[in-house]
Design a binder for these strands. Structure first.
Lengths: 111, 111
DNA sequence: CCAATCATGTTAGAAATTCTTACATTGATT
DNA sequence: AATCAATGTAAGAATTTCTAACATGATTGG
């Protein structure tokens, strides 16, 4: 089964490689993080680590921006898309802390 | 199709991350390269880049060494294993230059 | 037994990569 | 005109990686 697919989600790629894979500048990559569109992990020393999934997401983001969509709007899209995500994908992201820490996940039905 | 599986073979991981993923020391990782058991690519600046496949191979190598098998012997095993490899895997490795440059591949049936 | 080889550690200094912060720019939007 | 958005660039520090060399405790082949 898809146990191989963990390659896609493991954060192992440094920013220089991401730059090569995406064609984006480091400035852009860090800026999209600042705008809360992407959430790399860090080495103990503080260096960013990305996954292949992140790389793909970055390309999508860059495309939308090229189409004139603002980061603010992209973020809203992402939050919207999240609500109707399949439970497995959801569970994975929760485990990897990609949601909990960065998007506002409500714990109960209220508030 | 398995176009997703290219994640496994793309050389995007720096040695520090490989160290974390495998538990090996940098010394060990570089030594196994010196003994021609593994073939990272390089950044323009000369830094090593590994794939997930490399990471897995490194763990296998380390296990064999722990079992008392010498690098010399491990290399022979690998060369042996190569001869009966499926053509697709073969093609991929050729393309990625993991064989041609490092193992002696005969072009014709003789010599 | 002995010299050589194996596998690994360690050190040192240089080079490459990444980090944060700050200021600059251009084009929209208000 | 003032603000915001997206990106570039620069500076200096910090982190990571590199190569080369020397050290060491097995192991091993003769």
């Amino acid at each position: 089964m898809g146990s191989d697919s963990s390659y896609k989600y493991k954060k192992v790629i440094t920013i220089g490689i991401v730059k090569e894979l995406t064609g984006l500048s480091e400035r852009q990559i860090r800026y999209y993080e600042e705008r809360k569109l992407i959430f790399p992990e860090r080495t103990p020393g503080g260096n960013r680590k990305y996954s292949f999934e992140d790389v793909e997401l970055l390309v999508e983001i860059a495309n939308k921006i090229e189409d004139g969509v603002q980061t603010h709007e992209i973020r809203k899209e992402m939050l919207r898309a999240q609500k109707k995500q399949n439970p497995d994908e959801m569970k994975r992201k929760m485990i990897q802390g990609q949601l909990n820490a960065h998007f506002g996940i409500r714990k109960g039905p209220y508030s």
